[in-house]
Amino acid sequence: MSTTEISRATEPFQFETASYLILIGNHTAMNLADFSMGLGNCSDASIFYHTFQSLGRHHFLTEGFSNDFAQWVLNSCNRPALAEQLASVDVRDYVSLVELRTDLRRTVDEYCKQNPNVSSQSAFEKFYFCETVEEEVPLGFEAWTLEEFHDRLKDLPHGALEFHFITSRLRLQLRSNDFSQWVKKELGLQDLARKIDQIDIYTNTLDSARAAIIQLVEKELRK
């Protein structure tokens, strides 16, 4: 514990949590044609809710669940090939909801063009486009050193982990997360920042992602 022990940030890491209200939107889809139209017309907050936040809401699932769109196409439209394409969209590749929306809609439209008879087939269940309103709340504690950061991380609620580790990508407009940004900028730990960023949020639960971050930080502290 030599270098990192004495490293103290100029700005502390402020732990926050976010709580979300779900707003029921006015767009619904009963078939793939409606769905494509909904993808084009719904709000950015709706795209965010059904992709980024879907990942957070289902953080305990580690296999086969990517976003609400893919799930609906699979279960209500019984279109596994399209569902797989939608599920393969990795939100970490996007820093703009406009790009994400464009790619999702293009995937659906191309599928419908190749399978013109399916776009008007009724789904088992309607898709309701929803969106969220975010309320950020400071948790009232902060970290100035890597050690303090480590200690706080252990007891962080899921809402805060989701806020700092998943949805932060859009806020930062970077393919990164709040934790990586802080350890890089404030503590100069570029390698640790990169490794935290590499943790796969699709194959980890929030708890296992937390455990992986803690393990990386502990390794750094032992240096």
């Binding site: 949590t17 709340v137 400071p138 948790l139 009232g140 007891d155 609620p157 899921h158």
Partner: peptide, 15 residues
């Protein structure tokens, strides 16, 4: 739920 989740509720309510 774990203590962290209850602490989070208290943080929300404090406002």
């Amino acid at each position: 739920l774990g203590e962290a989740e209850i602490a989070e509720l208290r943080a929300l309510a404090s406002r």
